[in-house]
Amino acid sequence: MILAAVYKWDFGLVLSYTHLWAKGLGVTLAYSVGTVVGGMIIGVICGLLLLVRSRWVTLPVHYYVEIFRCTPLLVQIVWFYYALPIVLQVELPDWFAAGLGLTLYMGAFATEIFRGGIISIDKGQWQASRALGMTGGELMRHIILPQATKRMIPPFVNQSIIQLKNTSLLYVVAIPDLMYTGSIIVSDTFRPLEVYTSVAIAYFVILYPLTLWAARLEARVDQ
């Protein structure tokens, strides 16, 4: 209490690192977009594979999803950054190894979202399409996916919002995102209160409009 009363807030110094902040923000956004897009591609592919009737295909996908859903993301990031290059005996660029865990994590959730969207479509739609003589590809493209995509959008947006926040975990592998940039500025200015408050505000300013948008999307799909 006394400390709080005495402490003199000074954002001026902290905010004067505009160039660093901008770079950090750029890295955060780049990793968000990159890992979300990568994860969605994985999700669509794995989601479709889950519809194949062979267990040899669905079981590996199933295990992939469960492994990533049932281990902490922080552990995944660290493991892919430090352990994978050793296990595979390959040299991966740092930025790539750092994003791998995040992408595969997003991919696991995207797979579930994609599969959930597909199987949420009424069985009657499948049988009516088949009865008309549509092949699997035709009924997917013309009947199931147009309906399922609409239902997938809100959970995809929600997961992307979570993903943007999750990029802050890249801090542990020294990727200069918003969070890591903050820690650099702290070591330069010794102003952690101002720095981490600024970091929190930055995330909020980006994400709050996105959550509003997601809520509106959800309301529209529910109609």
Binding site: G124, Q125, Q127, A131, G133, T135, E138, Q147
Partner: peptide, 24 residues
């Protein structure tokens, strides 16, 4: 199977209890 099965079904019309029209 596959396309052959689809072609077989295309020659037979079917109407269901729950209509199952395409809502979109």
């Amino acid at each position: 199977r596959g396309r052959d099965l689809a072609r077989f079904r295309a020659r037979i019309g079917m109407v269901f209890q729950q209509f199952d029209l395409f809502p979109h």
